[in-house]
Design a binder for these strands. Structure first.
Lengths: 240, 240
DNA sequence: CGTCGATGTTGCGCCAGCGCAAACTTCCTG
DNA sequence: CAGGAAGTTTGCGCTGGCGCAACATCGACG
């Protein structure tokens, strides 16, 4: 049971407004754990025994439909809370969480949640804000899927990933964890093939640089423009 | 300022776990208001001055994209909380709320939220559960939009509306508020025309009965089957 | 009670993106 | 280092559903 210094997590949204002592008290109930690349932190449908904060690495949350299709709910970056099923009234996890890189988490038993919240009500309001922003993001996704073409959705998805987990490299901004075309397809509601075709197109145009489970944005600005283009919007030239 | 009896709202999720006296104290800070059919309770982008509980009627939450397209976020039924922007950390409303029928709401000033939560922490946990289920529902919607055909998505949407606000009538289950084909299109990420074609088809098959801003499900069970059909799933006959 | 605006229906043609299939590349494992 | 698995690319043909357009209906309101 590694002890974590309160100062290392004090800036996380979950602990906003807490004193180091209080954080220490909360941390005392947590254990830290390591998950190897491609191992599952928890599985959809499994009893929600714990909730987590990601300290290091990256985790993919995905949902499987009854028919067996998968979609990617989101990618979790270090500092984010996840697996809060209990807090939102679920007995089981609604999605599967998979480490896409070697990852380190803090884990609390779900049973501790009611007690912690009773003692530290700000945990609830902090979590409410987190879940709220997540709801906003998901609504944005619905809006995009309803109104935009596949190409624009993929552009938005890449820009978001780069913003969340982009790492500056020589030729641009690299997404800092392994991500396949299939993953992108499952994030944007399209198919592996269509993603591949579009990324190939962009690579030829020099917008991005691809590789196996690797994407570097070379021209984020051009992607940005592409993402906002409304296809049917041919501005008629202003001629009197 | 109409006074509302605590017993009338005690069963609402927002007030779960509160005593009548506590509810009374919370209600004292609210005012009730009436909104005529087709009037806006609040508009997207407007300062989030209040949060609400719907007492009577039906409210549609919708979002408008920068490009001017609209999508329907959800329909709010009596008893539901809405407009909790402040609680999830937003200064402005992320969507527009429109009364689709004459409606009555309870409204609290957003400024009262922090004080109420400080005094009654259970408000935060109750709201957390509400926002959590809403997140779940929205994820379901993303999954449907990613994996299902338009016809199935419409079937699901109608069944959900009927479950939430269905009224038993002579010929089946009627959706208890005015809803246009356009609205359904904006809920399912398709177009008015496609919705109209599909509903016409169903009407001919006797599954539903349509009218101007009116839909009656005659055969909910058949719709249910239709909604779960996976088109490409031709079960190979089990012959030894 | 006639007119007008909002809502709903339907035919037609097109195309973005899917499904299938095959080949290629990169990485991992034994 | 060979062999295979996982990931990626690409061609081809098809089609679900969209866009356009014209028309039909319904209700509200003067």
């Amino acid at each position: 049971m590694a002890t974590v210094d309160p100062s290392l997590v004090a800036h996380l949204p979950l602990f906003a407004g807490f004193s180091p002592d209080e954080i220490g008290e909360i941390l005392r109930e947590a254990r830290s754990a390591r998950f190897a690349k491609n191992s599952a932190v928890f599985e959809q449908g499994e009893e929600a025994h714990s909730f987590y904060v990601l300290l290091h690495g990256h985790v993919r949350a995905s949902k499987t439909t009854p028919a067996g299709e998968q979609i990617v709910v989101r990618y979790i970056a270090p500092g984010e809370t996840f697996g809060v099923a209990m807090a939102i009234g679920l007995r089981v996890y609604p999605a599967t969480a998979t480490a896409v890189d070697d990852s380190v988490v803090l884990a609390w038993p779900s049973l501790a949640w009611p007690r912690l919240v009773a003692k530290f009500p700000a945990l609830a309001t902090n979590t409410l804000q987190t879940v709220g922003s997540r709801l906003q993001e998901t609504h944005t996704r619905v809006v995009e899927m309803s109104t935009q073409q596949v190409e624009q959705r993929i552009a938005h998805a890449l820009l978001r990933l780069a913003k969340q987990s982009g790492r500056k490299v020589e030729h641009g901004l690299e997404i800092d964890f392994p991500i396949s075309r299939q993953d992108i397809a499952q994030m944007t509601g399209t198919t592996l093939h269509t993603v591949s075709r579009i990324l190939s197109g962009w690579e030829q145009r020099g917008l991005i640089e691809g590789g196996r489970q690797r994407i570097v944005l070379r021209e984020p600005h051009k992607l940005f423009v592409l993402a906002d283009i409304v296809p049917g919007e041919n501005e008629p030239p202003v001629k009197p």
